[in-house]
């Protein structure tokens, strides 16, 4: 089983921090416009949000595992709900590599595997180095082609 790149934690922490700051700013606006709040409220919200975000990121990183098995891409992840998914190679429609602005700064990339399913139709493996992402994309593509694309649709 393969783990994600440790730097992915920074990405998740940054996302959580951003959400906490947005909530803090919203509360500050409420404080000025609607009703005065004790200064501890926005600060507390940001602090709690940031701590929860860090804990979440660390735990999620520890939970995330993926593996290429004989017939399927297998993934495990989730903090609140732990999900183990098998994506059979035959069902792979196409494979993307993607990275957002923050991921680019951190030197990370994601692989997204698309199936014809309704739920879990796109499966994302985040936190890969660009090299690893490209390699995984190529491997998946070859495996999908080898298994004689039969998408069951």
């Amino acid at each position: 089983m393969e783990a994600l790149h440790p730097r992915i934690r920074l990405l998740w922490i940054a996302q959580a921090a951003l959400a906490a700051i947005v909530a803090g700013v919203a509360l500050a606006v409420v404080d000025v416009r609607v009703a005065s709040l004790p200064i501890a409220v926005p600060i507390g919200v940001v602090a709690i949000g940031a701590v929860l975000g860090i804990v979440y990121a660390v735990v999620l990183y520890r939970q995330w595992r993926f593996e290429l098995q004989d017939d399927a891409l297998y993934l495990e992840r989730g903090v609140i709900t732990f999900v183990e998914t098998a994506v059979p190679f035959v069902r792979v429609q196409h494979v993307d590599t993607q990275f957002g602005p923050v991921e680019r700064v951190l030197g990370l990339s994601s692989v997204v595997v698309y199936t014809a399913g309704s739920r879990n139709a796109d499966v994302r493996v985040p936190g890969l180095t660009p090299d690893r992402a490209r390699k995984l994309q190529n491997t998946l593509r070859e495996l999908a082609v080898d298994s004689e694309a039969d998408d069951g649709v």
Binding site: V83, A86, R91, A116, S118, V123, G152
Partner: peptide
């Protein structure tokens, strides 16, 4: 033959009781 992905899901509550749900996805809208 119609299976797309197969997942087991366990929420915090399910994990406490040692339970899991099995989700079988097919191509349908």
């Amino acid at each position: 033959y119609r299976l797309q992905t197969v997942s087991t899901r366990r929420s915090v509550f399910q994990r406490r009781l040692g339970l899991a749900s099995l989700v079988v996805d097919t191509a349908s809208s």
